[in-house]
Every structure is written in C-alpha cells, then in structure tokens.
C-alpha cells in the first residue's frame, strides 16, 4: 500500500510519519502531484495558520489537486479546517469539500475558556468507519483555537463550551480535528481503520 502525506508549510508531518511507522506502514511525504494522485491513501496533516497554508497550497496548485482526489483522504487538525468552506482565521476561503464554517472559540466570560484548547477531550456520536474500533466517548488529543461547526457531515462531536465537529466525512474525504497520531491507542485505531478503507 502506498500512503502519501501531503508536504506543505505546516508542521507535525514527522509525527504522522512515525505514527504510520508504528502501524507498520511506510508513508511518503510529498508535494509531487503524480505521487499524490497515484497513492492508495492520502493524509493531509497540519498545524499552522489557515491563510498562509492556503496561499502555499494555491501557489503550487495543490488546492485543485486535493479537491480532485478520489482515493480516501484524511485531513488532520488544520488539514480538516482547510477542507471546509471558509475559516474565520484571517478570513480565509478554504477548499470547500465540506460546506462548513470554521470559527474561533469564544469564551463566554473572560478567562473561563482557555484558548487554544490544549489536551484530551472525549468524542461522541461516532458514526464513521474510521471509528469502527473506537468506543463512544474515547479521549483524543486536541490542540486548536478554531473549530468546524456541526453539520450534516459531522461524524463525531466534541464539546468545548459548545458542541462542534470532532470529525467530518463526505464521500472519500475524512477529517479529524484531533491528532490521531498523538492520541495513544484510540488514535492508532482511527489511523488503522483509515488505512484499511
């Protein structure tokens, strides 16, 4: 099996590579369109800022490439947000696979809600093949200031003062807000199920 990890100006790629390695899968980090298009699975990771990341993707034509992919694609964290329609982070138009708005967490009272959310939160209402081996309310590791709102494509929900999408799925596109590569066993199950699709 051939797993491509999209290389762009966002961090965290090494961690994804190591997580795959722990599952006995060798990933290829690449921004080569042919290599990405011909992969069996594509992972679109990311930690970073939305507008900078989108600008980079557009410059290299990776935006059109990603939206045209037909094999299973997994967006992680910023990767998930970039697959949405629009992000409040520097008012950025994103890839639009999911018709979902990405908004910033707002603390209802000053300092009540710490932003970014950093840490382990439970995921509920799981209904996607990638959660096949993940028990309801398992904990996943999240690091983010922006969130994807709930939508018909929501396949997992989390709560940080409000309910939001912990995961989205539409056709061959899967996306998770948490970091499966850093979420201990629960996260490994998500990656494993994705790789088996």
């Amino acid at each position: 099996m051939n797993t491509a990890i999209i290389k762009y100006n966002a961090g965290n790629i090494r961690s994804v590579l190591f997580a795959l390695d722990r599952l006995g899968v060798q990933g290829t980090v690449t921004d080569d369109p042919e290599e990405i298009r011909s992969a069996d699975k594509v992972i679109f990771p990311g930690v970073g800022e939305a507008s900078t990341a989108m600008a980079y993707l557009r410059e290299r034509g990776l935006d059109k490439l990603i939206t045209s992919l037909e094999q299973p694609v997994l967006g992680i964290c910023l990767g998930m947000q970039l697959l949405c329609k629009h992000s409040e982070e520097n008012d950025t138009d994103c890839l639009g696979i999911f018709d979902v708005q990405v908004k910033r967490f707002q603390s209802p009272v000053e300092n009540l809600l710490k932003i970014p959310q950093i840490g382990w939160n439970n995921v509920a209402n799981l209904h996607s093949t990638i959660f096949e081996h993940v028990p309801e309310n398992s904990y996943m590791y999240f690091v983010h200031s922006y969130y994807a709102a709930l939508s018909p494509d929501t396949v997992a929900m989390a709560n940080y003062v409000i309910n939001y999408s912990a995961a989205l799925q539409k056709d061959n596109f899967y996306a998770v807000q948490f970091h499966p590569e850093k979420s201990a066993e629960a996260g490994q199950h998500v990656l494993e199920s994705f790789l088996k699709l």
């Binding site: 961090g11 090494r14 590791y141 850093k182």
Partner: peptide, 29 residues
C-alpha cells in the same frame, strides 16, 4: 517521537528560533 504515541514537550537551553525549528522537525510537539 518514534516510540511515544502521546504529545511531548522538550525544553532546556533553547534560545533561538533555529533550535526550535530543529526540535519540532525532529518530532517534538
């Protein structure tokens, strides 16, 4: 980073942007 499947922080004597770049590239969260 290869062996541990939870997040980790690295510190000690870091004083420059380049130090951080190298550590994050190496797999620190």
């Amino acid at each position: 980073a290869r062996h541990v499947n939870i997040p980790f922080t690295v510190g000690g004597g870091i004083s420059a942007v380049e130090d951080v770049y190298v550590l994050l590239q190496s797999g620190a969260d």
